[in-house]
């Protein structure tokens, strides 16, 4: 570590995305280039819940000047040995920890949460740590890190270390690349596949009716399942953030185009998730039910409307290119 990385204070990225972004940024990658995928996939998994994903291809297949490595561990000792090994080589890395054991977190000795912190350097028995999500940068003892890692393993079954390395071939986005990204988004959101693969779930607008059924079953039920509500919240937040990050990429290259329809979509998803969380925490389902459903409908309407807006943007970019 030459200099400590900047703390990325950005609520549109999860703790995972923040740590990964920081690793990539240290390799010279622009924050806007990483998280632009804003598709929609929904799969009803019956009693096991559901799967929502706004990504439609592996991040490795994006145009990026870096690549990521993820290593999985099932015991704390091996994981910590590898942490020390990578740090010794001069690499910053991200490692999974449980918030419950982090003194600087808002859940210290209160709630268990999956979390990712960045470790930049080892200094004897201490580590220099950057926790973007909690705006923390400073030293943590070996014992504190081990507590966080051990608790994570106990709660969430396996440990992960993430690293980022620079590619040799530097690339920049061209208009052609950006048009392709918008085209991909339009295709997915219209419900069509990008690749010839068999899917159990549905894409884009085609997914909305089955998702609506599943969602209404959940919010209209007599007793809401806490884990399922958490899953909906996390999924809505992830989709909302994906829209904002898609906006961020396009806005960087086309600052004069009105892309506010994308941020509207982002806000709708995030607000919907927040409403769910509020109803759950305060146990106000009856009072919130109608409001949640209204926001849900508004969110889907905006998504449908956005396909049309996005096609207009695409047409104008294609025309100007010609």
């Amino acid at each position: 570590m030459q200099n400590p990385p900047r703390i990325i204070k950005d609520n549109t990225l999860s703790c995972f995305q923040l740590a990964i972004t920081s690793l990539a940024e240290q390799q010279g990658v622009q924050i806007d280039d990483i998280w632009y995928q804003a598709g929609f996939y929904f799969e009803d998994q019956g009693d096991d819940g559901f799967l929502i994903d706004s990504r439609y291809k592996p991040i490795e297949d994006q145009i990026l000047n870096c690549y990521f490595e993820e290593h999985e561990f099932f015991d704390v000792g091996t994981c910590m040995d590898q942490v020390d090994y990578y740090l010794k080589q001069g690499n910053s890395l991200a490692v999974t920890v449980d918030n419950y054991e982090l003194k600087h977190s808002n859940s210290y000795h209160n709630q268990h949460h999956e979390h990712l912190i960045e470790i930049n350097k080892r200094m004897g028995e201490k580590y220099f740590v950057t926790d973007h999500f909690f705006h923390f940068q400073g030293e943590m003892t070996h014992e504190e890190i081990v507590s966080g890692v051990s608790s994570y393993l106990e709660q969430f079954k396996s440990l992960k270390i993430n690293l980022c390395f620079l590619k040799n071939n530097q690339v920049e986005y061209t208009t052609h690349d950006l048009i392709q990204i918008i085209q991909e988004t339009c295709t997915i959101m219209s419900g069509e596949k990008l690749f010839n693969v068999s899917l159990r779930g549905e894409l884009g607008v085609n997914a909305f009716s089955i998702m609506t059924n599943k969602f209404l079953q959940c919010v209209n039920g007599d007793g809401q399942d806490e884990d399922e509500i958490d899953d909906w919240y996390n999924a809505f937040k992830e989709v909302g953030n994906s829209r904002y990050n898609f906006f961020r990429l396009l806005h960087r290259y086309y600052p004069t185009i009105d892309l506010s329809f994308i941020t509207k979509a982002s806000q709708n998803w995030i607000s919907l998730g927040n409403m769910l969380l509020k109803a759950q925490y305060l146990n106000t389902w009856k009072a919130m039910n109608e409001r949640i459903i209204k926001r849900f409908e508004r969110t889907l309407s905006q998504e449908i409307e956005n396909i049309h807006h996005l096609r207009n943007v695409l047409n104008s970019l294609c025309n100007s290119k010609q």
Partner: peptide, 11 residues
């Protein structure tokens, strides 16, 4: 107006 949003930026 003076105010703030929580858990996101909203209009």
């Amino acid at each position: 107006f003076i105010g703030a949003s929580n858990n996101g930026d909203f209009s």
